[in-house]
């Protein structure tokens, strides 16, 4: 019973990271029909932002040495700025491009950003020490829960609730949802495409920054491709959730998180290293069963 609960909490916390990433990816897909590979770079660069830029093998904390609240704010600001700038430089000139072109463009952007990161910081992984006190465990009865898992779940919950409120209650939120459904009609009602898209990029930047820090605290390691596995999982999560549905993206994230933990537990030891392959197989299986994903939305066609 205790191990079951323990696994459940692991699953929720891993699923939280996936869900946050999937929401960041899903938001841009909803508004722009863009599958943003560069989201991986947003996460990676957010994590690297806390150290002094250099190619030295030893990382020196800079922003990471500040008070946690200031550090988090700084990372959010940096990633949001990066997201908005890439929108402006790369995606705005491609406003009329079709989804496959956007897909390739984001792939190219991701490739360039990855190697820029590598040029600045060097390709070797670097150990960093942030939030080591989060490794402590809290005892709840017989249950040992690492503080980091509690923090991850709490932050995810807070971000999902805030995002939902933003999309439901605010002017830009409602405009984003209208644009996600029928961008041309929204523009006919005077909704500014550039504003809505910039806000969507900024939101996805906030989500990416949160993942940067939570993920870094989990692994304690910086690497130029650290964001990639998360984003690949997030793509898969948005597909099984039903592309274009934010609820679907979040649900998909948690489903993949649970699947990973369950597989980790039930797979025999000798094939456990293939766990991720089973996760991806599961995705293909779900797609066979429901080609439009778990949460189905109306036809995804028109854009700006």
């Amino acid at each position: 019973m205790i191990t079951l609960l323990q696994n459940f909490i692991d699953a929720v916390s891993l699923g939280s990271l996936y869900a946050l990433t999937a929401l960041g990816v899903g938001l841009l897909f909803g508004v722009l029909r863009l599958i943003n590979f560069a989201h991986a770079n947003f996460i990676t660069i957010g994590a690297y932002a806390i150290i002094v830029p250099s190619t030295n093998a030893i990382a020196t904390l800079y922003i990471g040495a500040w008070h946690w609240a200031v550090m988090s704010t700084a990372v959010v600001v940096i990633v949001v700025a990066l997201a908005v700038v890439t929108e402006f430089i790369v995606f705005r000139p491609l406003r009329r491009a079709d989804p496959p072109t956007l897909l390739v463009a984001s792939f190219a952007l991701a490739y360039a950003l990855q190697y820029i990161t590598l040029l600045i910081y060097d390709g070797r992984p670097k150990a960093v020490d942030i939030g080591s006190n989060l490794a402590e465990q809290v005892m709840v009865g017989e249950l040992r829960i690492p503080k980091l898992e509690i923090l991850t779940i709490a932050v995810t919950l807070a971000l999902i609730v805030s995002l939902a409120l933003f999309l439901k209650r605010t002017r830009y939120g409602i405009q984003i949802r209208a644009a996600a459904e029928d961008f041309r009609m929204a523009r006919l009602l005077g909704v500014r495409a550039n504003t809505v898209i910039a806000v969507a990029f900024a939101l996805s930047g906030v989500l990416a920054a949160a993942v940067s820090l939570l993920f870094l605290a989990r692994t304690g390691m910086l690497a130029p491709r650290m964001g990639l596995p998360l984003v690949l999982i997030a793509f898969v999560a948005t597909v099984i959730g039903g592309m274009g549905s934010l609820v679907g993206a979040a649900v998909g994230g948690f489903v993949v998180g649970f699947a990973s933990v369950v597989l980790q537990v039930v797979l025999p030891v000798e094939i456990r290293q293939f766990r991720d392959a089973f996760v991806y197989l599961l995705v293909i299986a779900i797609l066979l069963w429901r080609p439009a994903g778990l949460i189905q939305v109306r036809a995804i066609t028109e854009r700006v």
Binding site: I174, A178, E181
Partner: peptide, 14 residues
Amino acid sequence: RIFGTLTVEENLRV
């Protein structure tokens, strides 16, 4: 071309 997933209120607000 109403926004089907938005409420009536939200359609008007947009």
